[in-house]
Design a protein around this nucleic acid. Structure first.
Length: 496
RNA sequence: GAGCCAUUAGCUCAGCUGGUAGAGCACCGGACUUUUAAUCCGGGUGUCCCGCGUUCGAAUCGCGGAUGGCUCACCA
């Protein structure tokens, strides 16, 4: 600890009283020759182990470490709660056991300090499993006060910006992210066990393809060229099917330069899965299996509760063609209508449609207005119009529709899949249609990807593809109403 | 991007029709050797989000701005 360091401790012009007091204690510890920021510390138990295995551990010595979450001083005895990643355990300090000097150090301990503790496991008169402290070591002095021990941190702005504090004081938050980890791990295990190979494809793209979305633009200095952050890995993964991989998946982030909402974050996690020689029907079954697998692993049941509603994930989920869903929920049959007829039908139902809206636009509008808000229990919406599905195979019996599906749960689209279009000639035509839309101002329409067409020209096996929205799945399984609750550091505007 | 709402102590929140800034927790001093939202006695620690305006006087009223939440739009 050099002179400069010591001077910085004094440098507290900006500090409020609470922080100044903590720095005084820090200084006192240093003056006593105690390092407030200790080193590697070997533990013998966790808080949870001590509680769960108390019968066999009673009266034994233990070495534990964690953060002090509360202090109750009673003169010559003090109680404290120590929290580690497994839970809390009570500490009991006595002056006659520690001696005056060691016991006196407690006056330098603040809520939030990280301590290493040696002691004997016992149960207090009131029945609380505790550790009677015989030795303590400062592992990290905390220089900022923690939020209210009872009310915690509620200000959502602060919770997201200072997630580290949120995690310390709101125990449920850690559980959400533990569940998130479990979900991702169980998807990975599920796919690997079935012979899928996990791959990584570029996130810096020359062409942002595989989805309809506006991309972020970045710049490569030495190449002096702009690049896009990927909006989907789809086109790369299907190049791998051309190359001979038959079952691949990628789990990672996509970046979309779109609005932010309770269901949208600019960067989000998706899992895309491709299986050669399969089709949309196979991928729907895979979707059901994955959801059931996760539900069993994290909930132990295929019935879950989301915001008070019971959701039954037991397969099979109904398959409902989009036009039938619209007929069912709006009473209007849009099958086979011309653009003008479709616009007329929309106006009759009081929908606001652009004068040049296409049939596909009208179908989407009907779906979003009348159908989507009703889709609470799991259902596959299938057979989307070809115009909004530029990478999906057309249906054999109706080339205006595609062999595509989107599962909906609690009104959210949680995935998207289809029989992959492997005809390079039709694919080139579809890209041209997309470019026409682009020219009409649709920034989210596909860009032409000549190399992808070239890949298809070598021959891609027929395949089924599936993209899972991981964040929404985590929301569903953790009963979280906002995507920000399942992202450790959701995107926030910087504070001035 | 639009509408509505919020922003007061470290945290959670009161603060009426404009009149010297409040509580609980936390913190500081004191008492207390099995407490657990420990208790008891004493202490209020503040850029009332920022700026401008109205007024004798603004946390409070008006205008502008910042950040956040919700709804809508774009999207997954």
């Amino acid at each position: 600890m050099n002179q400069e360091h010591m001077e910085h401790i004094e440098d507290r012009e900006e500090l409020n009283e609470l922080m100044a007091v903590r720095r005084d204690k820090l200084r006192d510890l240093i003056d006593m020759g105690i390092d407030p920021f200790g080193e590697k510390f070997e533990r013998t138990h966790t808080a949870r182990e001590i509680v769960e295995r108390f019968a066999e551990l009673e009266d034994q010595n233990t070495v534990i470490a964690g953060r002090i979450m509360s202090l109750r001083t009673h003169g010559k005895a003090t109680f404290a709660d120590l929290m580690d990643s497994t839970g809390r355990i009570q500490l009991y300090f006595r002056i006659d056991l520690l001696g005056e000097e060691q016991y006196g150090l407690l006056s330098k301990v603040d809520i939030g300090d990280i301590l290493g503790i040696t002691g004997r496991i016992f149960r207090t008169r009131r029945g609380e499993i505790s550790v009677e402290v015989s030795g303590m070591k400062f592992l990290s002095k905390s220089l900022r006060p923690l939020p209210d021990k009872w009310h915690g941190l509620k200000d959502v702005d602060l919770r997201y910006r200072q997630r580290y504090v949120d995690l310390i004081v709101n125990p449920g938050v850690r559980e959400v992210f533990e569940t998130r980890s479990k979900i991702i791990q169980s998807i990975r295990n599920f796919l690997v066990e079935r012979g899928y190979i996990e791959v990584e494809t570029p996130m810096l793209n020359v062409i942002a393809g595989g989805a309809n979305a506006r991309p972020f633009i970045t710049h490569h200095n030495t190449l002096d060229m702009d690049l896009y952050l990927r909006i989907a890995p789809e086109l790369y993964l299907k190049r791998l099917l051309v190359g001979g991989f038959e079952k691949v998946f990628e789990l990672g982030k996509n970046f979309r330069n779109e609005g932010i909402s309770t269901k949208h974050n600019p960067e989000y996690t998706a899992c895309e899965i491709y299986a050669a020689y399969a089709n949309a029907a196979d991928m729907m079954k895979l979707t059901e299996e994955i959801f059931v697998h996760i539900a069993q692993e994290v909930k132990g049941s295929t019935k879950i509760v989301f915001q008070g509603q019971e959701i039954d994930l037991t397969p099979p989920w109904p398959r409902l063609p989009m036009l039938e869903a619209i007929k069912q929920y709006s009473g209007v049959d849009l099958t086979g209508l011309s653009d003008e007829e479709a616009r007329q039908a929309a106006r009759e139902k009081g929908l606001d449609v652009e004068p040049n809206a296409s049939y596909a636009n009208v179908v989407e509008e009907f779906f979003d207005t009348f159908v989507e808000p009703k889709l609470i229990q799991p259902v596959f919406i299938t057979d989307h119009p070809v115009e909004v599905s530029p990478l999906a195979k057309r249906k054999k019996d109706n080339p205006k529709l595609t062999d595509r599906f989107e599962p909906f749960i609690v009104t959210w689209e949680v995935a998207n899949g289809f029989s992959e279009l492997n005809d390079p000639i039709d694919q080139e035509y579809r890209f041209r249609m997309q470019m026409a839309q682009r020219e009409q101002g649709d920034e989210a329409a596909h860009m032409m990807d000549e190399d992808y067409i070239r890949a298809l020209e070598y021959g891609m096996p027929p395949a089924g593809g599936l993209g899972l929205g991981i964040d929404r799945m985590v929301m569903l399984f953790t009963d979280s109403p906002s995507i920000r609750d399942v992202l450790l550091f959701p995107h926030m505007r910087p504070r001035s």
